[in-house]
Each structure stands twice: as structure tokens, then as C-alpha cells.
Design a protein around this nucleic acid. Sequence first.
DNA 1: CCTACCGATCGGTAGG
DNA 2: CCTACCGATCGGTAGG
Lengths: 195, 195
Amino acid sequence: MSTIKRKKASRKSLILQKAAAMFREKGYAATSMRDLADTVGIEAASLYNHIKSKAEMLQEIIFRIANDAYVQLDDLEDEGLSPLQKIESIMRFHIKMNVERFEEYHVMVTEWIHLEDPYLANFTSQRRNYVQKLEAIIQQGIDNKEMQPVLPYVAVLNILSSIRGIEFWHRSRKTYSAEQIEENMVSHLLNGLKK
Amino acid sequence: MSTIKRKKASRKSLILQKAAAMFREKGYAATSMRDLADTVGIEAASLYNHIKSKAEMLQEIIFRIANDAYVQLDDLEDEGLSPLQKIESIMRFHIKMNVERFEEYHVMVTEWIHLEDPYLANFTSQRRNYVQKLEAIIQQGIDNKEMQPVLPYVAVLNILSSIRGIEFWHRSRKTYSAEQIEENMVSHLLNGLKK
DNA sequence: CCTACCGATCGGTAGG
DNA sequence: CCTACCGATCGGTAGG
């Protein structure tokens, strides 16, 4: 029985992984359950033995990665870093997330509009909360004289948006390595903040 | 007859404007012609007296604004600015575009995946070309000693991605003015480039 | 996990 | 610009 359970669980995660890839490639609304079933190698009706609905798959993909980001930020609070070091650490964490789990990451940042309430409301309030924590760190860096007096709202917008832009690198022929992207992105955005 | 023609043209541009608003809000694939017709105030079938297809509307929205950006970049070449001044000018132009025509701008940067060939191929090659021109300007700024030696590919990615992120400001309660967004965005991203 | 099927909705057309 | 309608496809269920 534990074997069956394990088999079922891995089947579900295969489906979610393929779903994330398709949602990223074609968008949530333009992905049909039949397309997904073909990719997985079963009939459309059979998907429903593993997942409850198309909407539920989107929720699971988005909240799994969103929660990982959230947890990392909480863990960071205890580490006694300066505001500038914290921002650098968060940037590198997000860049690595986007490089390694780019399908989920991309679905989170672009397909969240297709969530339905209460998931939609949860997601947007969770994100607002997250952004406000980052803004507070930057404000501390300014008070600290570690950073220039740039509007924290805009600095956070620039940082998160730039990382989101790594999507283009994924779609390209990847002339540059993930390390080059990370180092240059961190240095451009951090130089713009430093005093 | 010229009155009729004008009336028809304005009807079409009303439809395109409403379409851009809906494509942005719900995504291209999730917007139905019936939804759009309701918003315009006519029957779905009547839309086809003004436009050829749903796909054609997407093409017109995207290429109109993409071409405007393209033309502006060409005009800039003649103005005898330094590389750093050019980048600042391009940034401010894009920020203003995103602030004033945010529905079209957002459709261009997020819904282009739903273009079909040959429009899809045209769009991506036009964009690659555009990005390469920006990269060349930044490379000149580095050779110039006006800018730090950051990878031009990444600098352009950060700049265009950050501007795209203004979408979040549009969705927010807009605690900050468009001018504040522009000035802070320019200063953060340009400071990170300057020597 | 499959066959067989449902009602709803899609983009679009014919004809006026 | 409308009524009436088309074939295709959608997400999902029943029953095995």
C-alpha cells in the first residue's frame, strides 16, 4: 500500500510538472486538459484521478513556490546581516529560484491573474506583505547610510522585475551562463543602491 | 462618405481600445469575443464588421506600440547624445509610454506569445534587434568610460524588465505619482551603470 | 486508467 | 448591426 501511495504521489507531481511547463509556454487559459493529458501520456479523463480540477493545479504550482520564497525571507531575519547584505541574499535566492525552477517561477509571476477567490485574494495580499518587508529592509539601509535615498517602493519593483526578466534568458540561446547573469544583475542593481 | 469612413475608423479604434483593456485584465486567451462585444455594446457577430478576427486585433495592438518604440529609437540616433544620455532618454520614453498607454504596453510585453506566425517570428526578431541596439549603446558607454563594465545584455534586461514592472504600480492604489516612479527608477538604474 | 458522453462556450459565418 | 446558427473544443462526470 505504501508503494501504491508513493506511485500515486509521483504521478501527481509529474502531472504538475508538465502542467507548469505548459502553463508557462502557452499560458494557463490556452492550455487544455487534453493537451496536458497527451503530454503525460494518458486520456484527459484520467487526469482527474490525480487532481481535482485545472484551477487546483494552478493553485498548487503557484503557492508551493510562493511559500518557499516566503519561508526564506523569514529565515533571513535571524541571521544578523546588514540591510544591504539582506537584499543581496534575497536577490541571489530569487535568481537561483528563477534559474532552477523557471517554469514554476514564471507561472507564479504571470499566471496568478487566473487564480480565483479566495486564492486570488490570498496571493495578492501575501505578495503585498512580502514586498512591504523588502521595502522595510531598504528603508533600514537608507537610515543606515548604507544606501542612497531611493524610494524603497521603486527599488523593490526594479529588483523583482529584473529577476522576473530572466525569463528572456531562458527563452534565448543562452550565450551567457547563469553565473554571469547572477553576478551582473546583482552588481548593476546593488551599485545603484549603494552609497 | 468621409463622415461614414471616420465613424467606422473610430468604431474600430474603440473596439481595439476595449480589447487591449480586456486582454490586459484577463489575458488574450481568456477574453471571449462575446465579453468584448458586451463591453462595446453590440452583438458578438457585429464585431466582425470592424475587425477580421481575434488574432488580428492582437496583432494591431502589439505592432502599433512596438513600432512607436522602434521609430523613437531610430530618431534618437541623430541627436548627438552621449551613450548615457541616450539610455536615459530611452528609459524615460518607455516609462512614459507605459504610464500613458499601459494597456497596450502590457499586452505587448505579456500577450505576444499568442501571436501566430509569421507575426510571432516578426515580433521576436524585431525585439531581438531592438535589444541589440540598446546593448550596443551600453557597450559604447563602457568603451567611453561613462559606464561601469556591466554585461550589456544584463543591463538591458534590467532596464526593460523594470519598466515592464510599472504594471504593478498601475494595479496598486498609486501612493506615488508617475513622476516619482520615473525619477526614482531612472536614478536607481542609471546610478548602477555610472562610473 | 479508459470509453463514452454531458452541457457550455468558443471563434466565426450566412444572410438580411 | 442583428438573428440564427455552425462545427469545434472546452472542463469535467458516470460508470466500469
